[in-house]
C-alpha cells in the first residue's frame, strides 16, 4: 500500500500536467479569437491565464472542475437539484438496484447452465449475443417501452444496469461453479451427497473467488448502464442527466464535474467489493 503511493502520485502529477497543457492547446483558438475581435494582442502568459479560466472552455482546466465539484457538493444542500451529491445519489440507487438484479439473474443463469444440459447448450450463445448489441441502441427502446406500460423512474434505468451487469456474473459463476476438481466431486459422490448438498457445500464456496472478480466488473458496468439509462429519458436527475444538460448548454465544466463524480463513485463501489473480497476470502482461507 505504502509503496504504491509514490508511483501513483507521479502518474497523477503527469496527468495533471498533460491536462493543463491540453487545456491551453484546445482553448487557445477561442482566446485568440476573442482578442482579435477586441483588437488586442495577447502575450503567452495572458493566453495561458485565459485558457485556464474560460466560462465555456472546450477543455476545462482541473482547478475549474475541482471548483465546480466543490461548489456543487459541499456548498449545496444534498436535497437541492443543483447538488451533485443529489444527482450521484439518483444514479447510485439505479446502479445498485441494477447490480443486485443483474447479479441475481447472472447467478441463476449460471446455476442453470451448470446443472442443466439443455441450458448449457442453448443459453450461453444468447448471453454472448446480448452483449454484442450496443447498449446505446437499445437503452432508449427499453426506456420508451417501459414508459409506455407505465413504468418509469428508477426501474427502467436499473433494467439497463442489469442488462450490462449480469453478463460478467454469468461468465464468472459458470467458471466458478465448475472449478471444483473431479476428485472433489468424486468425494461428494462417495458420501452419496445430493445435488443440493454438492452445490451448497462444494460448488458455491469454490466459486467465491470467481464471483468477486465478476462483481467488480459487474458493478462498473452497472454504473455505466445507469448513466446511459439517464441520457435518453430527458431525465431531470442523475449524473447522466447532468452530462446531457451540460452538453445542451455547452457547460463543459458541468460535464467534467459529473464525469469526475462518476469516476469517484465507480472507484468507491469497486473498492467496497474489493474490501469485501479480501475479508471474505481471507476468512475462507482462499487468498
Amino acid at each position: 500500500m505504502r509503496r504504491s503511493v509514490v508511483p501513483v502520485l507521479t502518474v497523477v502529477g503527469f496527468l495533471l500536467l498533460f491536462w493543463y497543457a491540453a487545456a491551453v492547446w484546445l482553448n487557445a483558438p477561442w482566446a485568440y479569437n476573442k482578442a482579435q475581435r477586441a483588437g488586442e494582442t495577447l502575450s503567452f502568459s495572458q493566453v495561458v491565464a485565459d485558457t485556464w479560466s474560460q466560462k465555456k472552455p472546450r477543455l476545462p482546466a482541473p482547478h475549474q472542475v475541482a471548483r465546480e465539484v466543490w461548489e456543487t457538493t459541499a456548498q449545496k444542500a444534498v436535497t437541492s437539484k443543483r447538488s451533485l451529491i443529489y444527482h450521484a445519489g439518483v444514479t447510485l440507487s439505479a446502479t445498485l438496484l441494477g447490480f443486485v438484479l443483474g447479479t441475481g439473474l447472472g447467478i441463476l443463469l449460471a446455476v442453470g447452465i451448470v446443472y442443466n444440459r439443455t441450458m448449457d447448450m442453448s443459453v450461453m450463445p444468447w448471453v454472448i449475443a446480448s452483449q454484442t448489441i450496443p447498449i446505446l441502441a437499445i437503452a432508449p427502446m427499453i426506456i420508451v417501452v417501459l414508459n409506455a406500460v407505465g413504468i418509469s423512474g428508477l426501474l427502467p434505468k436499473a433494467m439497463i444496469s442489469m442488462y450490462l451487469s449480469f453478463f460478467p456474473v454469468v461468465v464468472g459463476m459458470v467458471k466458478g461453479l465448475r472449478s471444483p476438481e473431479a476428485m472433489q466431486l468424486d468425494q461428494m459422490r462417495t458420501w452419496h451427497a445430493s445435488r443440493g448438498q454438492t452445490f451448497w457445500k462444494l460448488r458455491l464456496p469454490s466459486s467465491m473467488p470467481y464471483l468477486f472478480t465478476s462483481l467488480k466488473i459487474a458493478m462498473a458496468a452497472s454504473l455505466v448502464g445507469a448513466i446511459v439509462g439517464e441520457l435518453p429519458t430527458g431525465a431531470v436527475a442523475g449524473l447522466g442527466a447532468r452530462l446531457l444538460a451540460g452538453s445542451y448548454y455547452g457547460q463543459t465544466v458541468q460535464i467534467w464535474s459529473a464525469l469526475v463524480m462518476a469516476a469517484v463513485l465507480a472507484a468507491c463501489l469497486v473498492g467496497i467489493i474489493g474490501l469485501l473480497q479480501r475479508v471474505m476470502l481471507r476468512r475462507m482461507g482462499m487468498s
Binding site: 468425494q187 458420501w191 457445500k201 464456496p205
Partner: peptide, 26 residues
C-alpha cells in the same frame, strides 16, 4: 470410506469442519 491420493481438504473449512462434512451430508 474412500481416501484419495491427495488430501483434498476444503480450504474454507477447519480440520474439524472437514471431518464433519460427510457427517453433515449424512
Amino acid at each position: 470410506g474412500y481416501v484419495f491420493q491427495a488430501a483434498g481438504l476444503y480450504p474454507w473449512r477447519t480440520i474439524g469442519g472437514n471431518i464433519r462434512l460427510p457427517l453433515e451430508i449424512m
